[in-house]
Each structure stands twice: as C-alpha cells, then as structure tokens.
C-alpha cells in the first residue's frame, strides 16, 4: 500500500503484484483510497488495526481511533461519529462486530440507519485452527435480518476493493465479510460492481450454482470445470450482495437451469441459501440444494482448507453435490 493514488486499475496484473490477493489488505486499501478523496472517511478500530490498518493511522492520524477491546463502545461510538456526518469504517473480526456487539449494530446502526461501514474479517472458517470461538458462520444470518442493512460478501481481493469503495459511497449501514488468507483471483480489471446486481461468471443451463464469498465462488468455478468434464453445463453466479438480493437474477438462473445450488462459507441456516430459498419459494419454486457449514460447531482441529473439504465446500464437494442433485431431480 505505497501509492496514495493508484495508477494501476484494480484487478490488473500490476495492481495485484502491488497489493496482493488478500481481501483484508484490499478492503483496507479501499478505505485508504476513499479517505484520500473524502474527508468524512474515518477508521475506527477494535485493537485489530495491525491487520492492515496501520497505513491509515500513519496517513490520517486524526481520523483514526482505536477503541481497544470493547466492541459495544466501538459500534456505539461509530454511530455517534456518523451522526456528525462522518463515514466510520469499523474494522474488526466479523464475529465480534455482529455477535459481541449485535445489539449495538441493531439499535445504534440499523435502527438509526447510521452511515456506518462494518468490515468484518476472519469470517467463515478462515480462522481454521483457532477453533469455534473464532469461526464465524452466523454473521450473514444476523446481518441479513437487520432492516436496512446492506450485506456484502466479495469473491476475491479485487471484489473486496470495489465493494469496499461502493460500501463507503453507499448511504446507509453496510456489513462486508471476508476472511484473512490470500485467496484465488476471480475478477480482473474489467469487472464492475453494483451493490444490487449479482454477476454471471459462466453460462450453463443444467444447473445454476449461486455462490458468495472468498472461497465459494472460486470453488464453484472450479466445480463447473469438473462438471463440464461430465457433460454438465453449470451456470455460475457471484452473488456478492446478499442483501438487497438480486432476486431477478435468482429467478432467471432458476428458469434457465431448473436446479439451483447455493454455496457459502456460512451456516446452512440463514445465509445466502436461505435468501435464495425465500425468493424461489415465492417467485419460482425450483429444486434447491444449500451447501454450507452444517448446523454444529466445527470442533475438529483443521486448517481452513480442511474445514472446507469436510463441509463439501471445495470444488469436488460442490461438483458431486450438483451431480447428486441432478440425479435426484431426474428421478422425480
């Protein structure tokens, strides 16, 4: 993060060689670049600023507040800053923002439609060996149910940058989740993002795979390759905005494929899959399979990749779930 004004287009090879492919870093870069042009942008921290936040502190020390390990005050104070027209970017682990300080997010942020941007890192199973206290598989369900909350799950570091900028420009409370690791690149410099529009990454008419987040979208694309080897054409959608959901794209995908799979690094309850199910039930009843983390704490010690494999959220797991679903649908 050296250049203040980046000459390289985000997602280009030059930009990636400079900034890398960790969404934690590029979400920070989005805040830093936004702050350059917009004096309303503040960085508000919960003693986790050393995860990429020090550049902001060095460049804009008067707009940087570390609130220590006290998330209720962190969120409440951010809402207070927003009451004065600031755009506070709260950076902490997603679990702490949305669960430790859930009621502050509900009352001070959502109820007041405060212009607070919550950047939640270490979500899903990204914390791997850290164990269930640091796994965060409930945040989408919580964020999604709060009225007026925009909920984002970028598919890669490029999307994290663009969606981070869009979140800051958007007027209203926003939650963006991401992990911690370097993850595969999905989008290049030609990708463009709108907060209410999902992206079709690959066309196909046998099954529609609607995915969201850092590992699921890349895995879904890889699964589509595996399925193609079996003669199955999968449509792959990056549903980066969980709320407001691009309902038309959900319905269109269901219509084209007649079978929908959702993939998320989140509990099978309450996240992307539930959101898609709500739309399909009401608008176009279609067979649906929800791939996510089972409804229990992931107590097995494992790295991130191992957890994903165990939950069937890697490419092989997604492909075999798609084939099984196709067989079941054909049999009925």
């Amino acid at each position: 993060m050296s250049a203040v004004v980046d000459q390289q287009p985000p997602g280009s090879p030059g930009w990636i060689s400079q900034h890398g492919l960790s969404a934690v870093d590029t979400a920070r870069l989005a805040q830093l670049d936004a702050a350059e042009h917009d004096p309303r942008v503040f960085s508000v921290e919960g003693d986790l600023a050393d995860f990429g936040g020090m550049a902001f502190k060095e460049r804009y020390p008067r707009r940087f507040f570390d609130m220590g390990i006290a998330e209720a005050n962190l969120i409440g104070a951010a809402a207070g800053l927003a009451m004065r027209g600031k755009v506070p970017c709260v950076n902490t682990f997603g679990a702490f923002a949305l669960m430790r300080a859930c009621e502050q997010v509900r009352v001070d942020v959502a109820y007041h439609h405060s212009n607070v941007k919550i950047f939640g890192s270490f979500t899903g199973l990204a914390s791997g060996f850290s164990g269930p206290t640091h796994h965060c598989i409930e945040d989408l369900a919580i964020a999604r149910v709060l009225p007026g909350m925009t909920v984002l799950a970028p598919a890669d570091a490029v999307a994290a940058y663009h969606l981070g900028r869009a979140a800051i420009e958007h007027d209203g409370p926003t939650y963006m989740r991401f992990g911690m690791d370097v993850t595969p690149q999905v989008h290049d410099e030609h990708a463009s993002f709108r907060l209410d529009k999902g992206l079709v990454l690959r066309e196909g008419s046998d099954v529609a795979v609607i995915a969201a987040g850092l590992t699921p979208v890349a895995a879904a694309l890889e699964a589509a390759d595996l399925l193609a080897e079996q003669g199955v054409r999968a449509r792959v959608v990056d549903m980066h905005t969980i709320k407001p959901l691009d309902e038309d794209l959900v319905e269109e995908s269901a219509q084209i494929a007649g079978l929908v799979l959702t993939v998320e690094e989140h509990s099978r309850i309450g996240g992307l899959g539930s959101a898609v199910a709500e739309v399909l039930c009401e608008r176009r009843p279609t067979p649906l399979r929800i791939l996510g983390v089972p409804d229990r704490f992931a107590t097995e010690l494992s790295d991130h990749e191992g957890h994903l494999r165990r939950c069937g959220l890697d490419a092989a797991g997604i492909a075999s779930a798609a084939l099984a679903a196709l067989r079941e649908v054909d049999a009925t």
């Binding site: 209720a72 409440g76 951010a78 600031k86 502050q104 001070d108």
Partner: peptide, 17 residues
C-alpha cells in the same frame, strides 16, 4: 447502555472538527 458510547462518538467528532 447505548447512550454513552454514542455520546463518545459525538464528542470525538466534535474534537476532530
């Protein structure tokens, strides 16, 4: 328990401005 944290944010903004 909500008022004082929000008050802190307002006061921080006042100092900044």
């Amino acid at each position: 328990g909500h008022g004082l944290p929000v008050g802190v944010g307002l006061a921080l903004a006042g100092k900044h401005d």
